[in-house]
Write a protein that binds this DNA or RNA. Structure first.
Lengths: 339, 339
DNA sequence: GAAGGCGACTAAAACGTTTTCGGTAATATT
DNA sequence: AATATTACCGAAAACGTTTTAGTCGCCTTC
């Protein structure tokens, strides 16, 4: 086992000082060309690579980005992550991922762990627990220490930082408008409780589209789940009770479940009932019929988040200007709607 | 912006030495109880947290694990990752993820980047590019530096290290055996080229099950794709050409595509044709009918990989014993097969 | 021949810890 | 009273870099 070689080893071996070696490897003008050659040759021979940790300690810069997401086994988050990783890697940054598992406590613990020098900044989507608790002190503490944060998708007004979201309201608005143009009258919405910022926005878009088209808002057509987990029975009751001809779902899973249910009741999609779901994931693509989806462009979102964060990290000056980038959603039409 | 507080600050403020502070915070017996109280109170007040980087430099231990996977937007890998993250986190480790994007070069670059002090060990699944090139020198170099590696799922004989895989051969064997028990005669297999270790194993299981049941192996019933991407036309030609009553697919995507195709040709699943796919992911669960799947237990695999790695990292002694853990696959029965 | 400049290199501090080895004073032991 | 013990604390090295501030000898220059 050949141990890692350090500047000190090279210096001792070559009978020069550590600083000379350091400078020679950086091709500094200060060092004579023969010494430089000698050092560089030796370093190459022994495959010298500077120790990242030592450099981090010196520069107070780790070139690591901390990413905290509620769940990794979730298509949208992984696409965002891919965008982050791609951009960060190209800029020479590594990505440390922690999963909050939708829990406030785990989010806090993970942030505290990483905030002690391991990373230069955070990119995160708030956990359900955090949004429920509405407590953002852990974020505040981090920003007060001068560690920048970029929030994506699940954000909050309470924290001053850069954010990147999609225009969820518009996404819902456009989806509902499409339903109406297609002649649908009884448009249902399947969603989660309002403590998710995204659910609120989407609900707002839904209502606005109805009202703009002179359709009365009907509370009975809203099916709300308290969490991401689903209760078959509740869905079944809902569709038995209400007569609907279009469904906007806040995620894929709810939509797919509903589609299978109405199909089993003999309804035809999209003739009898249309579906549009948020998040253009695998399920939408491979459902039968394919589920028309509001694409959230996760990968692009991730790239932008990484770009914003690295920009902040690398800018020397401490401007206190924060921006929110709003991406436009697009509707990917598939077989679950008429076209 | 309150800057991070260090031992030095506390020492200066309290008029004691740095070592005293350090020891006081560790509740060392060497320090008088009043000094300890004073220091601890001060540290608590100013929310002192030791700098991870400095500790890493000192201990030559980062408490970081490097994970290198071919793709993050891939259900199996994310489940494995979840297992890794969960276990590692519980043990106080953080996880740095790099995505090789199935490319040999990116795998090499990422490993070199992380190997310079950023991590204590690697957990990885080989990229397609690496398996194709059959070049594992980057792994060798890392292990020679004393950095442990755990390979999962996509492994190679050429590297001496801990490994965790599922019994792919047995998974395929069981699936085909089930088909035969169900009375199927013309059993097709959809797979990728053989340079994936998993594809080879599964193909072997397929052949063995046929031969054990006295069914001749028929090359024409094997559909091979050169990569993970799919060509609709090729699938269509295949099913137009060959009459098959059961299909074993090496992944979900191939299976789902095929199911939709045969359904559009008017065949009934599972009456006319049965399907089993590897990787029990979202698609299998939500397809209609549901796709019977060979579950790979990704999360468990991740936990084991993390356990093995941390074990190696924390064991002082340098034993040169490497083990391979083989997990048993299970068949999750759904509507795509009769039962 | 003194002052200055330059080329080539080194010493040392700094980043923030941990830890070993002393050191000093007070107390206990003979 | 001399010595040993103990309690408490600090100095300094070490981890591997980078960088500032020299040092030293030699060559110009007036």
């Amino acid at each position: 086992m050949k141990k890692k070689i350090t500047l000190k080893h090279i210096a001792r071996e070559l009978g020069v000082s550590i600083s000379t070696v350091s400078k020679a490897l950086k091709n500094s003008e200060e060092i004579g060309s023969d010494t430089k050659e000698k050092v560089q040759a030796f370093a190459k021979l022994y495959n010298y690579k500077p120790n990242n940790i030592a450099i981090s300690l010196k520069n107070k810069r780790t070139k690591n980005i901390g990413v905290i997401i509620p769940d990794i086994v979730h298509h949208f988050f992984t696409t965002v992550f891919r965008g982050i990783e791609k951009y960060a890697n190209a800029k020479g940054y590594n990505v440390i991922v922690c999963v909050s598992d939708e829990s406030f406590d785990r989010e806090v613990i993970n942030m505290e762990l990483l905030a002690n020098g391991s990373i230069d900044g955070f990119i995160m989507a708030l956990s359900a627990g955090t949004q429920l608790k509405n407590d953002y002190n852990h974020l505040k503490e981090v920003t007060e220490q001068g560690i920048p944060i970029v929030l994506f998708d699940r954000v909050t007004e309470d924290i001053k930082c850069d954010k990147v979201i999609i225009n969820d309201k518009k996404g819902a608005y456009n989806a509902v408008t499409k339903f109406i143009k297609d002649g649908r009258k009884r448009i249902a919405m399947i969603t989660t409780e309002d403590y998710f910022s995204v659910s609120r926005e989407r609900a707002a878009g839904y209502r606005e589209a109805l009202s703009d088209n002179g359709i009365a808002y009907n509370e009975d057509l809203i099916l709300k789940f308290p969490s991401m987990t689903i209760d078959e029975k509740v869905i079944e009751d809902f569709f038995n009770r209400e007569k609907v001809d279009a469904v906007l779902s806040v995620n894929e899973i709810f939509a797919i479940h509903s589609m299978r249910l109405v199909q089993s009741k003999g309804l035809k999609i999209p003739e009898d009932i249309s579906f549009i779901g948020f998040t253009d994931g695998l399920l939408s693509k491979y459902a039968s019929p394919g589920l028309t989806a509001v694409a959230q462009h996760g990968e692009h979102m991730g790239e932008i988040a990484a770009e914003m964060l690295i920009e902040k990290v690398e800018s020397e000056l401490e401007e206190e200007t924060y921006t929110t980038r709003v991406l436009e959603p697009t509707i990917i039409e598939r077989g679950s709607t008429v076209n």
